[in-house]
Design a protein around this nucleic acid. Structure first.
Lengths: 212, 212, 212, 212
DNA sequence: GGATAAACGAGACGGTACGTCCCGTCTTGAG
DNA sequence: CTCAAGACGGGACGTACCGTCTCGTTTATCC
């Protein structure tokens, strides 16, 4: 059930050997190694298979393209996101962004940001991947949603704030920076959050209501 | 000198036949056709050459990868950007964004947005392409810069506004939408601009000064 | 002990379920069907297993390669070979060849000729298969041997005729025709037999004796 | 133009690089080496390409399967066949068969017999190959045809002998021996020829004429 | 005008990776 | 204990493109 990728392979009724977890781990590990050694673009399914001592057919059985392997890694890279303190949206956002950007930069070993960028790139031509990414995004941004809701409840944000749009808006600045290779260093995160907050506090625009 | 791509091939001293403009046009046209028929990802240099009735070597002589062909097309897709009226930043931005997004969506026939997205994607692994894109971006965003400067001069924006950062900030929301396949329809552009303006008018954060 | 193939699996000491005859029949039947549908070359063990609803391991337990399955079918294709009348070698041979060639052509449903040809082909690289084929051949050609011996006894063939060599010689013309896809129609069989008889009656050459 | 295989690639109207003879030679040489090292059955197109330092696509461009490479080698293996002396059919045949069998056994380095056997095997499933083999056979057996014709003219064979059938008959005994791995040593060739001659001299059967 | 040189189309080349297929083995649970 | 189902490591298949390299033709400059 867990990951969006695994979800495609749930049905299982008959007998026979089960999916090898050792192989799955070996594939992911091989991918991480190759990412560090040759870079995302130069990774081939062939090389991953050889490195993982797995058959190519096995890899294709579970991951249609290398982007899905990347997505598996993104899903596994669950950082310990802090429970929002709820004192102020600003401090909550700074905490949150610090963790997220640290994960993107690879503070925990795996530079998830590279994977995210390439997954978005390939999702442009692969609707199924786009959908999987979307669901990944929803799952991962739950905390962000909670933060914004609390802030709205506390009156830090206008009462009529559209939470979904606010979430998108809040991620657009950092994602733009990721996309253009300008992921901010920790000390620049507060500035980024302040810029975002200015936009949010002033109240996001709303769709025109017929009665207005 | 025109385009960033052509700039790499200026030097010319000796005799011999010149670059065939007919061939260049045929290649670009073939690319546009293939884009509509099979999508960006499925375009190959081989297919472009065959469609354009050009030799592969000829294409490689002028464009290292298909991303550079895309870049050539982006450069050629000069829309008639309006001279800013200078009445208000809001109306200027709405005019500007309307034109840019229209070009991205392909209102003039060629969906430039797809090309932009894929160029960004491939630029992640190709510094030279990234540089060419950067210079393309500067050129294209000159008008945006002018608008912001005028607005600052008129007092619509805080006097201490960092124009470069403001430009990035102003483009981050639309680019994010482009990247996530949510390019707004014309009637939603005003909302997008308003969200951006809220952030800008409140004053972008500034880097910490040593004396603070 | 029946077939040369089965003979490899006679020893049976331990307990447990016995070989399922239903499975064996299903495999052979599946093979015959596939032979008609896709041709010998395109038959795979995988497809046979699936068609027979048998496990691949089960098939491999009893037949090392598909050639052995073919051999099993050849062995089973016991036609009612006529007891030699003993009136004349010529009429006996015509009867015999008519039956054998009919079987090759598939008059009884299964075109055994195709199986024979492919078994010979694969036997070139598989000594065990070659040996099995050899023993199959001996068994099948017993009648031919009898005919030749009777004819020699009756004086139709030179007294010093080497029966083994005569048997080979008698089969070489039809086998050559099988190999070159020229299996004679029934009315041409008499001609083939006559050609062979000419050679046999004149006396096959003998190995040089030391005293000659 | 010569060979049956090359004949498929004669048409050539436009410009462009020509077929590389060095590569063709390298492929054939690699095939010969692999034949000696691993045996026909274990040769793969992949290994041939690697050994010859040729691209797989290049090999597939000129030879559809490995059997066609074998056929190329057979065609190239032109032995110095003796001009028939014309003294007697028997001595001519012995000379001829000695040369042919020597080539099959590999007296000149390349065991052509193995190639012939496998080509026949694969021709059973490949009509185009069968046709190419047929034309190869015709070309190679020209001398045999001449011998038989001279002998008929001299009265050594019945005047009504069908030369084509005689040729087939003359080759059926040696080919049968090749197929069953019993290629005769030089001293047994005379016996083989004698057996064949007995059949020929007695007169091959003729198709029934309507007026008989 | 003849020589020279560049660019061109066509396309063969060595090579890499693709995604599929099948091999023969091993694992799992049902009978 | 055997069997079906089926996942596995492995490896060859035949294809598609890559980017480079002849070829011989065309086109422009220079002497």
């Amino acid at each position: 059930m867990a990951s969006p990728v695994a979800a495609l392979h749930e049905a299982r009724t008959s007998v026979g050997a089960r999916r090898s977890e050792a192989t799955e781990a070996a594939v992911l590990e091989a991918f991480v190694e190759l990412l560090a050694e040759v870079g995302y673009a130069a990774i081939t399914m062939e090389a991953v298979a050889k490195r993982a001592r797995a058959g190519k057919a096995t890899i294709y059985r579970w991951w249609p393209t290398k982007a899905y392997i990347a997505l598996s890694l993104i899903s596994k890279a669950k950082v310990e996101l802090p429970t929002p303190q709820g004192l102020s949206l600003r401090s909550d956002l700074i905490d949150y962004m610090t963790r997220v950007l640290g994960m993107w930069r690879g503070d925990a070993g795996l530079p998830v940001g590279v994977l995210v960028r390439h997954c978005y790139a390939e999702a442009w031509s692969d609707p199924a991947l786009a959908a999987a990414l979307q669901s990944e995004r929803l799952e991962r941004w739950t905390l962000l949603n909670d933060m914004l809701q609390s802030a709205r409840d506390r009156g830090e944000l206008p009462a009529e704030t559209d939470l979904a749009r606010a979430k998108d808006f809040a991620m657009s600045w950092p994602l733009y920076l990721l996309m253009t290779d300008q992921v901010p260093e920790p000390d620049a995160i507060a500035r980024m959050v302040d810029d975002t907050l200015n936009g949010l506090r002033a109240g996001l625009s709303r769709p025109p209501s017929p009665d207005t």
